[in-house]
């Protein structure tokens, strides 16, 4: 299908993460090695407290690992500054959070425009792109200026997706996105991930502890006590 199908997008080498809480050091990740290729639909499973979110935060460039190297599209990002990481998140990664995480003070369209403003687009350009993304997730024009609390839960979910894909991120990351959803909405969300995975060849990384949800992915790993265990 795609000539880049085998291109490595993410490579983790001996990643370790230690949380320091006062005098106590907690080793949340131990010697993680992982390769994710372009266009993969990837799930990370594991029990609560096993280290999934810790791993996801490192993958999403929201946090830096204590040890090891992280190559994102061949760039070593494990040593970059906070601002450089912000730039990488802005350009390459779209997040779908549990509970959507829309900014309540901003209208639907302003929420979707946000990543584009930080990317330096003008208001006009951002507006055009945001409208496109909203149409893609079936949010009609007359709801663009509503605030998140004025639209339904399903619509909020779609706005959150629009924000994640508005700048054509090559990687979509979602940490337990279905955690608060009923099965209908959860299926709707997963179908959407499947769709952009197929249509845009976007890499999808999904953290979940629900096997039904993980079943949408094509590749799986399981984390247990900070280790990756093979399925």
């Amino acid at each position: 299908m795609n000539e880049n199908i085998n291109e490595t997008v993410i490579r983790l080498e001996h990643i370790g993460m230690i949380y320091k809480t006062g005098a106590i050091n907690y080793e949340a990740l131990k010697d993680i090695n992982l390769t994710i290729r372009k266009g993969e639909f990837f799930s990370i499973m594991g029990a609560s407290g096993s280290g999934k979110s810790t791993l996801m935060n490192i993958l999403g460039c929201l946090d830096k690992p204590t040890f090891g190297k992280y190559f994102l599209e061949d760039e070593d990002v494990s040593t970059l500054s906070k601002d450089r990481l912000a730039e990488i998140r802005n350009k390459k990664i779209g997040f779908v959070f549990q509970g959507f995480n829309l900014i309540q003070r901003l209208s639907v369209i302003e929420n979707v425009e946000l990543p584009l403003f930080y990317a330096g687009l003008t208001h006009k350009e951002a507006n055009i792109e945001a409208k496109k993304a909203l149409r893609l997730v079936d949010i009609p024009e007359n709801k663009e200026n509503n605030f998140p609390n004025q639209i339904s839960g399903g619509e909020q979910q779609r706005v959150a997706i629009a924000r994640a894909i508005v700048h054509n991120a090559s990687i979509i990351m979602a940490d337990e996105p279905t955690g608060n959803l009923d099965s209908v909405r959860s299926n709707e969300l997963m179908s959407f991930f499947k769709k952009i995975n197929a249509e845009r060849n976007a890499t999808i990384i999904l953290v979940t502890h629900e096997p039904d949800v993980a079943a949408f992915a094509k590749k799986h790993i399981t984390v247990k006590d900070g280790h990756i265990v093979d399925n």
Partner: peptide, 16 residues
């Protein structure tokens, strides 16, 4: 705080 976190996640730098 949450809003700040969201803004940072989608690309806001310190100066922003």
């Amino acid at each position: 705080t949450k809003e700040i976190g969201i803004r940072m996640a989608v690309g806001a730098k310190k100066n922003d």
